[in-house]
Each structure stands twice: as C-alpha cells, then as structure tokens.
C-alpha cells in the first residue's frame, strides 16, 4: 500500500518537476540575484558586490530618483480611478441593456484595439494627440483653438493612452462579474419598492465590488510597471519608475541602481496587494 503511494508520489513529482525547475531557475533565482545586486555598488564601470545600502539611500535622498515613485503612483492612481469610472457603466450597459445575443459582439468590439500591438497602440495615440495630429487639426479647423494644444509629451497623453487600454481590460472583468449575478436580486429589490438607483447602490454594486477590486488591482500592477506608454506618450517631461530603471541600464549599465529601483517597484505592488488582499480572488485559480 505504502509503496503504491510512493510510486504515485514519485510520478507526480516527475510531472511537476520541469515546470518547477523552470520557475526556480528563470524566475526565483534571477529575482534573488537581483536582490543581491541591489546591495552592490557601481564604481566607475565595475560592479562591486557587497552589502551596501548606497542605492537605497540615494533613492530616498535624491529628488530626481524619488520623484519617479511619486510620479508613477500619481499616474497609476489617476488611471485606475478614471478607467473604473469609465468601464463600469459600459460593462453594465452591455450586461443589462444590450440584448443577450448581441452581448458577445458588443464585448468583442469593446476590446478590438487589443489586437493591435501594444507599441503600435501608443504610437497611434501619438498620431491622435500630436502637435499636428487629428485632434489639433480638427479643433483648429472648427475654429475652437488658434494654436495647437500641447498634449503629446505630457502626463495627460500618458494617462489617455493608459486609460484607453485599461477601460478595455476592466470592461471585460466587470462584465464577467455582472453577468454572473442572478437577475432575481434586482427583481426582488424592485418588487420590494427599491428605485433603480437604490437597487444598483445596495444590491448590484456591493455584489460586483470584488470583481472591480480585482480588476483595479490588475490595472494598478500593469500600469505602474509599464515602460512603453509613458516613454512614447509622456516623453521625458517627467520620468516614471520603469523609465528610470531603463535609464540606469542604458546610460551607464548601472545594474545595482536599476535593481534597487525594481525592488522598490516590487515593494509598492506588494503593499497594494496587501491593501486589497481581502477582496481579491487571485488565490482561487
């Protein structure tokens, strides 16, 4: 009996081993090396390993570095809030107002731009928002403005590009949540005399809150770690944390500083996770 269990266990271990080894070798190990690297120090062009706190001290004392964190946090929070506010009504309309057989189509259309490449999507916003882009040409043609608006290479452009992406993502997650609700709840509330608004406020919204929080967390994580959108749309007007990390790598090959900044980024994401852990359903995979 015990030997059968033993063979079974060995066999299972054999099945799980390749994936586990891959994750350990190419994810856990690199991460550990990066933590070690963040305590190293760059002298000239050589990396001196050791237990130096230089990078972290510099991060908290040099405004140009620390500002990356505040800029990233500000942009991410603005993007998350706007995206949820825009996506929720759309998901609600698709789930509640669009006839059932058109819902799939409506949803697929809502995420259509997902299928262009990520880099190209940010570039496309540049065409829309640029100095002589579509919006400026249209507004000037209509005589609304005399001089082109400077939107590209500002925080506004970064936020617009991000919101565009995350509205699509959040519409999907919130819709998935709404569609699981039994219509009986709303019907029961209506029968008991609740107004449409009261039904939404006291029934629908609380029931979909976990889905919203999960989507918002996903938005937060993807947004704060993204390099492309702020680099293409925001330019160098103000640098986010990922832009600073890339700058360290590119300019002087400062792996220690880049690693330290990455650890800071990880810490922020972990804090965000802990903050909304009790609403998240990530562990139910």
């Amino acid at each position: 009996m015990a030997s059968i269990e033993q063979t079974e266990r060995n066999r299972a271990a054999g099945f799980v081993a390749p994936a586990l080894i891959w994750v350990l070798a190419f994810f856990v190990l690199p991460f550990a090396v990066m933590i070690g690297m963040s305590f190293a120090r760059l002298e000239g062009r050589t990396i001196v390993h050791g237990l130096f706190s230089d990078n972290y001290v510099r991060f908290f004392s040099e405004p140009s570095l620390f500002k990356g964190l505040t800029v990233s946090l500000e942009i991410t929070l603005i993007v998350t809030v706007i995206s949820v506010l825009l996506a929720y009504p759309l998901a609600w309309i698709i789930a509640m107002r669009v006839p059932a057989r058109y819902q799939r189509l409506a949803l697929m259309l809502a995420v259509l731009p997902f299928w262009t490449s990520y880099v190209v999507r940010s570039y496309a916003w540049l065409l829309v928002l640029g100095q002589n882009g579509v919006i400026n040409k249209a507004l000037m043609g209509l005589g609304v403005i005399a001089e082109p608006l400077a939107i590209a290479s500002t925080r506004t452009a970064t936020v617009i590009g991000f919101v565009h992406f995350f509205v699509m993502l959040l519409t999907l997650t919130i819709y998935a949540n709404l569609i699981q609700l039994s219509p009986n709840y709303a019907r029961a509330a209506a029968d008991l005399g609740a107004s449409a608004f009261a039904t939404f406020r006291h029934i629908i919204l609380p029931l979909t809150l976990p889905g919203v929080v999960t989507g918002a967390f996903l938005t937060f994580v993807l947004c704060i770690g993204d390099y492309i959108t702020p680099q293409i749309l925001g330019g160098n007007s103000e640098l986010t944390l990922p832009q600073l990390i890339m700058l360290q790598l590119g300019r002087r090959g400062d792996f220690p500083m880049a690693s330290a900044l990455s650890i800071v980024l990880m810490a922020v994401v972990t804090l965000a996770y802990l903050a909304c852990a009790r609403w998240l359903k990530l562990d139910r995979v």
Partner: peptide, 10 residues
Amino acid sequence: TVSYLIIALG
C-alpha cells in the same frame, strides 16, 4: 504578479 520589466532585468 511581477512586472515584465523586473523579470527581464533579473
């Protein structure tokens, strides 16, 4: 749960 940038850097 980890940003691609961090995976890449590691």
